[in-house]
Design a protein around this nucleic acid. Structure first.
Lengths: 354, 354
DNA sequence: CTGTTAGCGCTTTCAT
DNA sequence: ATGAAAGCGCTAACAG
């Protein structure tokens, strides 16, 4: 799989060569780059001139990292489908938050490519980074053990909680209970549109009671919250339809919602797990000639731009802030868990509560 | 600015320690990790056991990079506002394209944080990467010289063309001529909504003739194409209003378009430089009670999702493919220029041409 | 299949 | 203000 040859076009110029050309010791040349004030102006100029003449690109970053014991780079693990990470606007916000902190601290940000295959572990191990941030994953993701094995500071976003790593997350269960209450209020046949339950991303339409094990903790907690909301609204979990989608995607959500809405017992409330999904549900409702919220109430999650456009009741949280918090924690060598704020945004996609 | 201490929690375990504990030479231990088949099963097991017992996290990536002369990481320079990069959907597509190729090749992808300040150069120099990809920037961006100084293979996306670095871009001038022709057909007072002209991102409303120097080559070429289109449609460049926005942003475009449409001589055709901008223009037109395209024709650029939704005539190109092409070129050590395909998508936001 | 030698390019002591 | 020595942790190159 290796691609690039180690060889460069022209041979590499070293600090030693620059020092020799400038007629100074290697250390003086080094100081010129690292502690310019410990070197006299004249000497510094000599070194810099020699460097320019030889085309010296500056101290080699790898050699520096080895010697210093730090790479000044943060690793971000985005999960199986790297391309997918960039298609998910919330994931992108999260990255933006990390990027902001990295920029502030003069750190680089390395996206560690994982594929879901066995070699993910080595991709983690091979990453030249000072610490890791792991985007929400499943309890059984081997990436977690690999990150921990590096002994570098690490934060997980969303979940799962891992011993030795900090966790940044909202209280998904409480938030789901709250938005679920808004969705299911006055509904007779509540339904849930769920993210995948495990990394295999199997799709299914089932009931709350018949769900298999949920390995993504974020999804699990939201389902628990929805369950509590449904029960509080008077519907048993076994009577709640749960449609599990493979991705966080409006188009898929629209297809699934269409199936639900055109079934024998169509739901009159659908709680989704993202605003993208909810927007697909709204499309499906329109196409099926159902009014929102009178025929079917809809809720989203994240308070993305589309939520405001469509008047979606949703859970607001700032992935950007959470990304920044993860980065701060790792950079500050203090990877401890912290709970992030969320709030319920009531709009017009749910029935009015008295 | 430095943040993390080089020190780790527990002291670092080295390959030499593992080798000693396993009762083999360092090289045998090294082979166990790098050429497992060159080592007998028994020996390999011994080494791995010792490694596990000592908590050895695997070969240190920095030391490896130094020794191998390769970091197996690609650097991506996204320009002054890193956060902004993640807010621009086209930039995100571009990143996704790069990420895909990196994943395929087992490479990491480092986002090099630049701020527009003087220390950008050292951020480039310090990046431990095998090559660079630079997102569209201005002719005078010092980042370009810094990247070239590293002597590593590099590709520029969009522009400018830099000696020794390859360029991936569409023919922006020709595309602007084509979409401009669609926009300005049958129009008496054409206008252009432009991206910033220089890195200072100054906003202004002026005419084609009064534009100051345009330092972003992509913007410059598009303006030239629009000029040709306007002249072909019978309007002199000095009679074309050019509104320069600070960012690629629907809200700002809407404000600017509102100003134009409510002025004494409102334009009857507006060619924008992105679909985001064009969507803002459409909003402004609606708010001002103008019909699209009858009162005002509108064109976008990129063929994003919103273009299809709004029926925008636009230029289609794949930033994702272009990102992938940049990555392939750098990884393949063949950073040569290549022209990317584009096409005109005619929809309902422009007047019908006979 | 395993080991020895050498050194990647740099910077942290510790002198002077 | 400058320099000499030492070695960060690892692997290519060559034995045996």
């Amino acid at each position: 799989m290796g691609t690039m040859e180690p060889s460069r076009g022209s041979k590499r110029v070293t600090l030693a060569q620059v020092a020799e050309a400038a007629g100074v010791s290697v250390m003086t040349a080094s100081y010129t780059y690292n502690r310019p004030n410990r070197v006299s102006d004249r000497t510094r100029a000599k070194v810099l001139t020699a460097a320019t003449r030889l085309g010296y690109p500056g101290p080699d970053p790898s050699a520096r990292s080895l010697r210093r014991g730090s790479t000044r780079t943060l690793g971000v693990v985005m999960g199986e489908h790297l391309g997918y990470a960039f298609d998910d606007p919330e994931a992108v916000s999260f990255l933006a938050g990390i990027a902001g902190i990295c920029t502030e601290h003069g750190y680089g940000m390395t996206i560690v490519p994982t594929t879901g295959a066995a070699d993910d572990v080595s991709r983690i191990t091979d990453a030249a980074v000072d610490g890791f941030i792991v985007w929400t994953t499943s309890d059984d993701d081997p990436v977690l053990a690999a990150v921990r094995a590096t002994k570098r500071p690490a934060m997980v976003h969303g979940g799962p909680a891992v011993d030795g790593m900090g966790l940044v997350s909202i209280d998904n269960r409480a938030a789901a209970r709250a938005v679920g209450a808004a969705a299911f209020s006055g509904a007779a046949r509540p339904a849930v549109l769920s993210f995948p339950l495990a990394r295999d991303r199997t799709t299914m339409i089932t009931t709350g009671e018949d769900l298999p094990d949920v390995l993504f903790p974020v999804t699990r907690e939201r389902l628990e919250g929805y369950r509590e909301a449904a029960e509080a609204a008077g519907t048993a979990w076994q009577d709640v339809t749960v449609a599990v989608c493979a991705r966080n995607d409006a188009a898929e959500a629209e297809r699934v919602a269409t199936a639900l809405l055109t079934s024998a017992e169509p739901p009159d409330a659908i709680a989704a797990m993202s605003d993208q999904q909810a927007s697909g549900v709204v499309q499906a409702a329109r196409a099926a000639g159902r009014a929102v919220p009178d025929d079917v109430a809809v809720t989203g999650w994240d308070d993305a731009a589309v939520a405001a456009q469509l008047g979606l009741t949703t859970v607001a949280q700032s992935l950007r802030t959470q990304g920044a918090a993860c980065a701060e924690a790792v950079l500050g060598q203090h990877p401890v868990s912290q709970s992030a704020p969320w709030s319920l945004i009531r709009r017009t996609s749910t029935r009015h509560t008295t």
